[in-house]
């Protein structure tokens, strides 16, 4: 979707990326969508941008460390450098007090069977920290939303994530800068692990396990 004089760009594909433009459009602002990070297209925009939301490509399917091949690594590096170039272009087009939001995943914290995906997740998050620091003087903001890794099988409500992304990208979110917001319904609190451990504990010490 492209409107004349866009002041907002949404980059990426999939349900979350598709849910974002309509929310911006509700505020009658021009939105342009790009399927991939495209530095050339961003540089070609005539207007300055108020906000950019980037939805990173989903993590590749699970793979043991020893099974990760060079083609898979090269593909992820290519995605990363595309985003790197696009962020450079965005910083050059962003209006004062403009905001960039990256929707990534929580792989940066580490996960089983996803060493390469976790590494690139860490790279994306760190890149956004640098964007925050480099854009601070111009009043820019940059934040990350970290979803669960796709292979975790957790359902993501695209509308909820889109609402969060738009909030961070809008003036309403101006107090939030340089943050990584985990959007995974509390799974990072290890609720399941806590339940399993509590159940195990209850088997050996029922009186304590059921009262905690």
């Amino acid at each position: 979707m492209t409107t004349s004089n866009p002041t907002i760009v949404v980059i990426g594909q999939g349900p979350v990326a598709e849910a974002i433009p309509s929310r911006f459009s509700a505020g009658a602002r021009g939105v342009i969508t790009l399927p991939h990070p495209d530095a050339g297209a961003i540089k070609a925009l005539e207007n300055g941008l108020d906000a950019a939301v980037i939805v990173a490509p989903p993590a590749p399917s699970p793979s043991l460390l020893l099974d990760i091949d060079d083609a898979r690594l090269d593909a992820q590096l290519s995605h990363f450098t595309d985003l790197f170039e696009a962020l450079g272009a965005l910083l050059g087009r962003l209006n004062p007090k403009g905001a960039i939001v990256l929707v990534g995943d929580r792989g940066y914290l580490g996960a089983w069977g996803a060493a390469d995906a976790c590494a690139f997740s860490g790279a994306y998050v760190a890149l956004m920290r640098c964007v925050t620091l480099e854009g601070f003087g111009a009043g820019h903001r940059a934040n990350c939303i970290a979803l669960d890794l796709a292979q975790d099988g957790a359902g993501v409500d695209p509308d909820e994530i889109a609402d969060l992304a738009v909030h961070l990208a809008s003036p309403a979110g101006q107090a939030i800068n340089g943050e990584i917001i985990l959007a995974n319904r509390g799974r990072s609190l290890r609720v399941r692990e806590a339940k399993d451990r509590r159940a195990d504990f209850a088997k050996t010490a029922p009186s304590k396990g059921t009262s905690q």
Partner: peptide, 23 residues
């Protein structure tokens, strides 16, 4: 890896190594 201005590609690469280490 914690972040820094003027070295984003280096910072990102080292943050990636940190996340790789955990995984």
């Amino acid at each position: 890896y914690l972040g820094g201005a003027g070295a984003a590609h280096y910072v990102a690469s080292k943050a990636a190594v940190v996340s790789l280490t955990r995984a």
